[in-house]
Amino acid sequence: MELNQILEETNQIFKHVLNNPNICLTSTTTASDIDEWDSLNNIRLIADVEQHFNVKFKLREILKLKNVGELCEGVQKKIA
């Protein structure tokens, strides 16, 4: 799957979980860029991304992610 497509689908997940239709993710977006993306919602986002793409992350993989781009790259590697 192309990285752009993963980013687009991840964007839809973020809009749904964070209940904010105006979210527009880029590969450099981080939690500090989106008000609703806090430590409580972070877990829900990861769970929904995993479920949507049918992949599983380890905790240490999640902790090392620096931005949305790295999350999408992680998904791409796992579904490849």
Binding site: S39, L40, N42, I43, R44, I46, A47, E50, L59, I62, L63
Partner: peptide
């Protein structure tokens, strides 16, 4: 406590949805 207790606990129970987050909190 957020980094070393909450996040590992919530991550382990992420399949429980809101209940997993509540349990971890």
């Amino acid at each position: 406590v957020k980094d070393y207790i909450y996040e590992p606990l919530a991550f382990n129970k992420r399949s429980w949805g809101v209940w997993g987050i509540s349990y971890a909190l």
